[in-house]
Nucleic acid binder design. Structure first.
Length: 433
DNA sequence: TCTGGGGTCCTAGGACCC
DNA sequence: TCTGGGGTCCTAGGACCC
């Protein structure tokens, strides 16, 4: 492989949520552990032992409960407050290794090395891995290559291939060309970043089975049969960077807040409470990003896993005359939406809101026909600021609007939630002598 | 009984304008 | 006998990601 000016490293946590739990509870080591999605629905993270039992990603909890029990395993409710905090700690360690750093997801980040030609990046990979482990307790894998797609691919080898697993680092630069071809030929095309199940099936039909096949495919032809995204993937596999490093988070284009309910709902008041809560949560996210929404979409849904039940999946969009970040206004619009689409006699499983047409709060258009004056907006902003601060400091939902309800019969299930070890004074560990 | 949530980008096709 | 064409904007749907 020719030496590029840049090299990318992808550092990501192994079985991240499970690893976060294990940091604080050593009894979880060596056992099949899964972390469940919201509402304790299905497995979203699995320990190696759980994977070895054949538990697939997304397996419904009720289908794997017995298997886990038989093997001394455990299913935990997800503790996102804990995982976000652990993520922040992990990222701050990783960021020390290059001035060019992108946080790609809760457990993954890219580093770019520019002008590090004389460094041994494999050594750097080993160091970052050791340091993250030592400082946060999280095991990570490191993949290094001349593009993001290749770094992802190398990371997969680092975590899964016996040749690299012990070291936990795979640097494509270290491999002889024939050796690289062997690894690429060994990898199914669906395991390439950017190729999902649909495209993989179509590619297999065309005789493109492995990462190596895709690398050698004609980008122009595949662009016509698929789209420009796949063309970029092919070019990236060949060492041409097409996907930029995004060091600053991009402003959001939409904000979604939705949840399945702990039980099926039929009462309109329950739905109104739930939707109000989601609208409030979305509004808080909106203000955190310094944005305002031009509209809000509300949706309800029955349980589509029960095809014999009457199905109903309505949605409606309410546009504002001027963009807003005011919880009260968003809740008001959301409730209007519920009124519009709610029909009795259905059993609802899920509801949500989506904020759309987001604009930066600094560049907001004034309300030509509105009655709200600047000082009123100003006071309103201060009030919402206090609400946000309190909810961050004292916990989400400490201060809320009456429309969100108090009993909240529809709240999600979290039967096996672990303590907020690093995010809640009550969850702090106690050392006993 | 029990099946997640939150995002992005691309494309095709229709509406509309001149 | 004869009925344009090009550009832009918007939306829905489909694919992908974690």
């Amino acid at each position: 492989m020719a030496t590029n000016r840049f090299q990318y490293a992808l550092v990501d946590g192994n079985n991240f949520y499970v690893s976060c739990e294990r940091v604080f509870n050593p009894h979880l080591e060596g056992r099949p552990i899964v972390v469940l999605s919201n509402n304790d629905g299905c497995a979203v993270a699995r320990s190696d032992e759980a994977k070895a039992l054949g538990i697939p990603m997304g397996a419904p909890h009720f289908q794997i409960r017995d298997l886990l029990k038989q093997h001394g395993g455990l299913a935990l409710s997800s503790n996102y407050a804990l995982y976000s905090d652990m993520s922040r700690r992990m990222m701050s360690v990783i960021a020390e290794y290059s001035p060019e750093h992108e946080v790609y997801s809760i457990d993954e980040s890219f580093l770019r090395f520019t002008g590090f030609q004389h460094w041994n990046l494999t050594e750097q990979g080993i160091r970052v891995r050791r340091q993250v482990r030592q400082w946060t307790g999280i095991p990570v894998g490191v993949g290094i290559g001349p593009t993001k797609t290749l770094a992802k691919l190398a990371n997969r080898l680092a975590k899964r291939h016996p040749d690299f697993k012990a070291m936990g680092v795979c640097n494509l630069q270290d491999l002889e060309p024939w050796h690289q071809i062997a690894y690429f030929t060994d990898m199914d095309v669906q395991d390439v970043w950017g190729v999902g199940p649909r495209w993989a099936a179509k590619l297999h039909e065309m005789g493109i089975h492995s990462a190596q096949d895709l690398k050698l495919a004609d980008p122009e032809t595949l662009r016509k049969r698929f789209n420009v995204v796949l063309e970029r993937t092919i070019r990236e596999l060949n060492g041409t960077p097409c996907i930029p490093l995004e060091e600053a988070p991009q402003p959001k284009q939409q904000i979604v807040s939705s949840r399945s309910f702990g039980q099926l709902l039929t009462d309109k008041r329950d739905l109104m409470e739930a939707v109000s809560t989601y609208a409030a949560r979305a509004a808080a996210k909106l203000r955190k990003g310094g944005q305002a929404a031009g509209g809000i979409q509300v949706f309800l849904s029955t349980n589509s896993f029960r095809p014999d039940d009457p199905q109903y999946h309505p949605s409606t969009l309410i546009n504002f005359t001027t963009p807003s970040d005011d919880t009260a206004r968003l809740i008001g619009a959301a409730l209007k939406g519920v009124n519009k689409i709610f029909k009795p006699a259905y059993r609802y499983k899920k509801a949500g809101v989506m904020l759309v047409d987001l604009v930066s709060n600094t560049a907001r258009q004034g309300d030509l026909f509105g009655t709200t004056t600047e000082p009123q907006l100003e006071r309103r902003g201060r009030l919402l600021g206090v609400l946000d601060t309190l909810n961050v400091q004292m916990g989400c939902g400490t201060l809320r609007f009456a429309a969100e309800g108090t009993a909240q019969a529809w709240r999600m299930r979290r039967d096996t939630l672990t303590p907020g070890y690093t995010t809640d004074w009550e969850g702090l560990m106690v050392a006993k002598c």
